[in-house]
Design a protein around this nucleic acid. Structure first.
Lengths: 340, 340
DNA sequence: GTGAAAGCGCTAACAC
DNA sequence: GTGTTAGCGCTTTCAC
């Protein structure tokens, strides 16, 4: 299974052909200073002629880094993969990595087998660092990577007292400002469709909802809360349920914009006009909504910045391997797109 | 930038601790036969106690394979990434790879910098094989990989006389059967919205359209053909254009189902009922349509099988490095979902 | 400025 | 069965 490709010239052969020592060739390859220009040219030519390509395994064994970082998606449901949220993050990570000369390797970890395999891969020194996406509350992978002293940065955190380095959005603040906005516009019966409450991000968004109500002196009613799971379908169901319990609802905070789209459908089915009768706000995790409901007001997350921040933390961690964990929480912003 | 992690025990230390030779430890790690059970246990314990993890760079340098294959997406537009088509393929590749014990590393190649970097990576021996997705006509990457003697398999091909190994769907046949189906149902003025004609897949689908007409003795009219680029927007525009030229149109073959959705919108805007007045068929590259237009009849591509076939070809190539290029073309199937 | 030599941690061939 | 040894191809002192 995959034997050594034959006829691959080695550094030694290049050296022989150029009539220099191995060290010199190595210096040329790595653009190290202290090589006479003429020598450098001779070596370059030999490299060209032989079609020499450095063996990366040998290089990283000899002490240098691998110049690769892994982006891990620990998601049993591959659907996430199809969300613009994801491609947006990957794009921004790729951009941020361009200048560093590092390869971004995306890995999908669904089963335990794959998780184990990836751990071996990472701990085996195949990558210099690991970026984790959509980590679930009980996932031990971040801990295991951290224990292996591998620079690791997550997008989002597993709980309120997360220690492993992460970049997150201010979900509490975002939800709070959304609900405050609705209150300021005169909405009085504001419901919320949350994400699964075993996910920290969902807890935060619910907390923001509660905070805004408290701030306005309104009372928090549990019957105005319905739990979804970020999907459109759950949004539809939750909204129908809420309307059943509280026909007077005139505002809704949805856990994601996918959920918001579901809620929208349920509202229309129930004969409610949006936003005249009921205003809906979602988080634009998944800008899908911009296609389905382009004028939906959302809590915008700075995906671009989140990607950049992740790379920054990773690089810092790689510079100072023994340093502390680092956390960054980015501000969210209410993007008003229709009079809600 | 990413120095050697300290305190990592080596095989040698394990050997010392277990009181055996290095070779024995190596055998235990690799589950090689010919080690006394008691010895094996002693070594295992030493491995546990030291928390030993094999250095993969050393291992692959010493001659074994890397046990990793790269999946490369050479797509300037990351949007593709967000298409279910893509996640579906990735899922099936992952599944097919599970039993082989190999890691799937996804790489995104947008810029020339990234292309160059990936080439170094691949030729540097970091992966045992390469899978390519959505390769464009003029792309030389497959050739360069093939020249480097790296097992390489593409999904789709760049032209009719592609040589590098690939797995493709029978696009001509799919288009032909779709159009024949429309003709059989009594449609007479059948138009087609093609993909960009510099892409082989788009050429094939147009050819299938022409074939079906020829087979039925109908004449091919160029004014019934409009070129799009697989996007929804282009579908909308092309459809409007076609209606302008031929108000009598009663059937449409769209290059993809995203395009089909665009066509649908344009038709409805123009007051046509679908499928009563005009029947639309698309290719379900991007099952997006199942959300937007769930009852659309489509030409189904066996994505699951395509993924499996790619892995099979790759493994074969890895077994016999010097063997010929291999091609597989999978049958497509008309999935009738509404009376068209 | 450049060459020689000592590893990096592992596998595999060969002794015993 | 198990230990020993010779590399794998590169980086990196350390002399010259």
């Amino acid at each position: 299974m995959g034997r050594r490709r034959p006829g691959t010239p080695t550094l030694e052969e290049v050296a022989a052909r150029a009539g220099v020592g191995r060290g010199t060739v190595s210096r040329v390859i790595n653009n190290a200073a202290g090589v006479k220009e003429s020598t450098r040219e001779v070596v370059q030519r030999a490299i060209q002629e032989l079609g020499y390509v450095p063996n990366l395994a040998a290089r990283s064994l000899a002490g240098r880094s691998t110049d690769a970082v892994a982006l891990v998606l620990t998601e049993p449901d591959w659907r996430v993969f199809a969300e613009p949220f994801f491609s947006e993050i990957v794009r921004s990570l790729g951009d941020a990595l361009t200048d560093t000369g590092m390869q971004l390797m995306l890995t999908l970890v669904r089963s335990d087998t794959e998780r184990k395999r990836f751990l071996e891969y990472a701990r085996g020194g195949r990558v210099d660092g690991v970026l984790l996406l959509s980590v679930h509350a009980g996932d031990r992978l971040p801990d295991m990577l951290a224990e292996a002293r591998l620079p690791t940065v997550m997008l989002g955190r597993r709980s309120g007292d997360e220690y492993v380095s992460y970049v997150d959005a201010d979900n509490v603040g975002g939800a709070r400002s959304a609900v405050s906005h609705l209150l300021a516009r005169g909405r009085r019966a504001i419901a919320t469709i949350t994400g699964p409450q075993d996910m920290y991000v969902a807890q935060c968004r619910l907390r923001g909802y509660q905070d805004a109500l408290a701030l306005a002196g309104s009372t928090y009613e549990e019957s105005l809360v319905a739990e979804g799971d970020f999907t459109e379908d759950s949004g539809r169901r939750a909204m129908a349920e809420l309307l059943d319990r509280h026909p007077e609802i005139d505002g809704v905070l949805a856990a994601s914009d996918t959920t918001a789209v579901g809620a929208l459908h349920a509202l229309r089915t129930a004969g409610r006009r949006v936003p005249e009768d009921v205003a809906v706000i979602g988080f634009d995790d998944f800008p899908l909504a911009q296609r389905t409901a382009p004028r939906l007001t959302t809590v915008r997350q700075p995906l671009e910045e989140m990607g950049r921040a992740m790379i920054r933390l990773l690089l810092e961690d790689m510079e100072e391997p023994s340093a502390a964990y680092r956390h960054v929480i980015l501000r969210t912003e209410l993007q008003v797109r229709e009079s809600a």
